[in-house]
Design a protein around this nucleic acid. Structure first.
Length: 314
DNA sequence: CGCCTTTGACCGGCGC
DNA sequence: GCGCCGGTCAAAGGCG
């Protein structure tokens, strides 16, 4: 797998606020040209080292309030135009926003599914009773269990392979044809017991060279040490710290940022990443800043970005 | 043999 | 009620 296939890394984050009065969804997107060296990511990781004192920094960085429905830009539409450029865009929308979902596939489908408040799997804690008839169970339990929205995170990557290696073990449990798209959508579940994280993978209909990956939920466990192949060796030791200690991947990071009330103290450290928005992810900073840093930062970057984007060879 | 993918059936929500 | 659609189940088969 040549590095050119991962030359462009598109990043699209979305998450939801869960508080009682505001149910907004923030979306953050940016595209970063990696050029020929991973240090090109530095602006991304550099910000992670910065400290942020308060949760509100996210809104301040965005220059908007959580209830704002103003749209600064359309990240997905921007993606198609800035394939080989650096850009960053931020938008915030509400579930009731009339923003069209036609410009993207999976990423904007988030909005729909979130709005639908679909019932989550009742087997969240333990699926020991797998033999129970699903038909009756679903009907009975559906009402009782309060619908709960799982934080989601979607990002777009330029890749020829659909399922990107991200350090976790996944089991495919379904595949469906995507409406208005020749490419199917695959459904994966984390194979770690009691971990309910799911992800969807589909190739972009508008740009078949890109793959849209959507994570749902947060891992409640460290990276598995028994990865198939030699994938585990690809990650630095810090990768195996408890998943709750700090964000390991962008989706975790952003979920923590946008839903800080769900964090524990350790996770709160992840808020530090919010400073990145004030610098390079601000809607008013469309100029990309190139930073040249040391390898140590690269290690941290690996903690955040699926290994596929950092590896030079499969 | 364990783990994984494949794949059609099934489910529930939604719009008509 | 019916059909569509997104998502999930689970049996069957593949593979190392």
């Amino acid at each position: 797998m040549s590095e050119h296939e991962f030359r462009d890394f598109y990043y699209h984050a979305s998450t939801m606020f869960h508080n009682d009065h505001v149910d907004d969804m923030f979306r953050v997107s940016s595209s970063v040209s990696v050029d020929h060296h991973p240090s090109s990511y530095m602006s991304f990781t550099d910000c992670l080292h910065s400290s942020v004192g308060e949760y509100g920094s996210l809104e301040k960085a965005f220059g908007l309030s959580p209830s704002s429905s103003e749209v600064f830009s359309s990240p997905i539409e921007g993606l198609n135009q800035t394939t080989n450029q650096q850009s960053s865009e931020v938008m915030a929308i509400t579930p009731n926003s009339s923003i069209s979902s036609s410009s993207s596939e999976a990423a904007y489908c988030e909005e729909d599914s979130a709005k639908n408040n679909k019932d989550k799997q009742p087997k969240g804690s333990d699926d020991g009773s797998k033999e129970s008839p699903k038909k009756g169970m679903k009907g009975a339990k559906k009402k009782a269990e309060r619908k709960q929205k799982e934080p989601r995170f979607a990002f777009v990557t330029k890749s020829e392979v659909d399922h990107l290696e991200d350090g976790y073990r996944w089991r495919k449990y379904g595949q469906k044809a995507v409406k208005n798209s020749p490419y199917p959508r695959s459904y994966y579940r984390c194979t770690t017991q009691k971990c309910t994280v799911k992800k969807r993978v589909e190739r972009s209909f508008q740009d078949p060279s890109t793959v849209i990956t959507t994570y749902e939920g947060q891992h409640n466990h460290p990276l598995p040490t028994t990865l198939r192949g030699n994938a585990a060796a690809l990650f630095p030791p810090s990768m195996f710290a408890p998943a709750t200690a700090r964000p390991s991947f962008p989706h975790e990071l952003f979920m923590q940022m946008a839903a800080p009330h769900e964090m524990n103290n350790q996770q709160a450290n992840g808020v530090a990443a919010a400073s990145m928005f004030g610098e390079n992810f601000s809607p008013y900073h469309h100029q990309y800043h190139h930073h040249h840093r040391q390898v140590s930062d690269y290690g941290l970057l690996q903690d955040m970005v699926p290994s596929r984007f950092l590896k030079h060879e499969p």
